Computed example of a mutant assay.
Amino acid sequence: MNWLLVVVGGMTGAPLRYLTDRAVQSRHDSVFPWGTFAVNITGCLILGALTGAALAGATGSHLQLLLGTGLCGALTTYSTFSYETLRLAETGARFYALANVAASVAAGLGAAFLGVMLARAVWG
């Protein structure tokens, strides 16, 4: 049963990542990978909220498998982040490469923290 929850979450997260990435990126005339940035920060927020809910006892392992492992595992992408950052650096857009790393780490941690705080406010 657990593997099915991960599969269902992944089946939702993967197309959601692709569609969100394309929608966000099409609205920006920049080499900065805004689509990947958006899905990764969203995933951090969801995982933070899920963690906060779990710490408050408001969710169980099934929801963590469905949303955390499945949905967020397919929604977020460290490999694409790494690839896009490398491509930026290789094509001479080093400022964007450094900005992508710094902004992704800072915003990702901030989003996870915000998610935990929101969950604590709701269920704490």
Score class of each variant (00 low, 15 high):
N2C: 06
N2D: 14
W3V: 15
L5H: 02
V7H: 01
G9L: 02
G9F: 01
T12W: 07
A14N: 03
L16P: 00
L16T: 14
R17H: 08
R17P: 01
R17I: 13
Y18H: 10
Y18Q: 04
L19T: 07
A23K: 05
V24S: 06
V24N: 04
S26C: 09
S26M: 12
R27H: 11
H28T: 11
H28E: 02
D29E: 09
D29G: 03
S30A: 07
F32N: 04
P33Y: 02
G35Q: 05
G35W: 01
F37W: 14
A38P: 00
N40H: 07
I41K: 01
C44N: 05
C44R: 01
G48I: 13
A49L: 14
G52V: 11
A53S: 14
A54C: 09
A54R: 13
G57H: 09
T59Q: 10
G60N: 09
S61M: 12
H62T: 10
H62G: 13
L65Y: 05
L66V: 08
G68S: 12
G68V: 14
G68W: 08
C72R: 02
C72W: 09
G73M: 13
A74F: 12
L75T: 14
L75N: 10
T77S: 15
Y78Q: 06
Y78W: 15
T80Y: 04
S82F: 02
Y83L: 15
Y83E: 10
E84P: 02
E84G: 10
T85S: 12
L86V: 09
L88W: 01
L88R: 01
E90F: 02
E90H: 04
T91R: 11
G92A: 09
A93Q: 02
R94H: 07
R94Q: 07
Y96T: 07
Y96M: 10
A99D: 01
A99I: 05
N100V: 04
N100A: 14
A103R: 02
S104N: 09
V105A: 13
A106S: 13
A107W: 00
G108F: 00
L109W: 04
L109Y: 11
G110Q: 10
G110C: 12
A111S: 11
F113S: 04
L114C: 11
G115Y: 05
V116A: 08
M117F: 08
M117V: 14
L118S: 06
A119C: 09
A119D: 03
R120Y: 10
A121S: 13
A121I: 09
W123D: 02
